[in-house]
Amino acid sequence: MIQVIQILILGIALGGVYALMSSGMTLIFGVMRIVNLAHSAFIVLAAYLAFFVFKTFNIDPIVSMAFTMPVMFLVGVIYYRLLFASRADNPRFADITVLVTFATALVIEGILAFIFTGIYRSTTPTYAKTSINFGPFFIPQSQLYALIISIVLIVGLWMFMRYTRIGNAIRATMQNRNAAQVVGVNVTWISTLSFGIGLAMAGAAGSLLSFVFTFYPAKHIAWIGMIMCLVVLGGMGSLVGALVSSFLLATAAAYVNFYFGAAWSPITFYLSLFLILLFRPQGLFGKKVEG
């Protein structure tokens, strides 16, 4: 029984980071209908940024989020403006963007491999090695911090979307791009901003992952597989869906990992993706219409 609860704790701790990883991707899809297959590559990029800052200036990866998040925000704004802004009306936009973002992921992977080589990296702040014990249970300090920060950021994003003028405009654009234009929302501007916010979330996720996991340039492939499954399971473009599926799958994968072995835990994600496609292609919280 203790074991069962312990696994649940670890699963939930990881679920927070997964939710942060998938929230940015789902936001970008929701507003722009772009399946950003480079999302995890941007996360890896941010992890390397945190790693670089940690190695060179010895700045804690949590502290350096104040740097990685704005940098990734800017990267997002420039990337969207440069490649996508003028093409949003193209009827083949969805297909094109999937491939373009995937190609972007390859470019990022190649550049990172060229600069940092393929060696496994991680940042090693002091809390990366200790655990907190409470009664018979424990949680690695790094995962606890990652969970707390992820939740703070996600709640922050939710409040921003709910209670600010710009947040409302983002939600409006997600629900009906045409109508948003009609009431005077500048959707191009909102899209650019959303892409920036999405990548800022990726930046935060990268910083946190840099001390939770080891990473290498090609790591983005495994991560994008996972994030995609979370986003599809939750329903493309649904923030709540991404959140729920993150905690659900993280916990499920933790149990599978314990009972069947580590090799099977990624398979949990892919199998759940195909199961949801089989029984509810629009995802848990998605809408029937899908582009």
């Binding site: 209908r33 999937v98 892919y270 195909f274």
Partner: peptide, 19 residues
């Protein structure tokens, strides 16, 4: 997989390779 279209379909094909 062909129950879906567009982006979801593409995702399912990547997931197939990874699986």
């Amino acid at each position: 997989a062909l129950r879906t279209r567009g982006s979801t379909f593409i995702i399912s094909t990547i997931a197939l390779v990874l699986l």
